[in-house]
Amino acid sequence: MSKYLLNKFLFTVDRDPELVESYRQDPRATVARWEEEYANRILNCVTGESSTWLRLEDAEREALATHDYVTLFEMGAHPFLTLTLFIGLFERDHPPMGFQTEYARRLAHMSLPYPDIAT
């Protein structure tokens, strides 16, 4: 599993309003598009610089494609990256602080120590 690539997805999608909306409306297609177009780009680098070997694993791809932030958290995705992206996706569907409360409720089964978030 590549926590780096998982966190890179969360980071890059969260910073692009078009990708956020695309991910909200059609997550499976957005994950596939992101993996094809963005996964091998070097962060904060001029275009043209890229690698060729980074791929999401099936379990990561499925958790992203189904908006399964609990599984992402359990896999070691960074909690701040996960929370900020999913607030952007679902906050409008909840009352004030409603999504954050739902996020905490769904992750209540987790106890310290949390999954390792080191990449």
Rank of each mutant, 00 (worst) to 15 (best):
K3V: 02
K3W: 01
K3L: 14
Y4E: 12
L5I: 05
N7E: 07
K8Q: 08
F9A: 04
F9D: 05
F11S: 03
L19F: 11
V20H: 02
P27Y: 12
R28Y: 07
A29F: 09
T30I: 07
A32D: 14
R33V: 02
W34H: 01
E35F: 06
E35Q: 11
E35S: 12
Y38C: 13
A39R: 05
A39H: 07
A39E: 04
R41L: 15
V46G: 04
V46H: 06
E49A: 05
E49W: 04
S51T: 15
W53E: 15
L56W: 03
D58N: 15
R61N: 09
E62F: 10
L64Y: 11
A65M: 03
H67N: 11
Y69V: 02
T71V: 12
F73R: 10
M75Y: 14
G76H: 05
A77R: 06
P79L: 03
T82H: 00
T84N: 14
L89Y: 09
E91K: 06
E91Y: 01
R92W: 02
M97V: 13
F99W: 12
F99T: 02
Q100N: 07
T101P: 00
E102G: 02
R105N: 12
L107V: 01
L112E: 15
P113K: 07
A118Y: 09
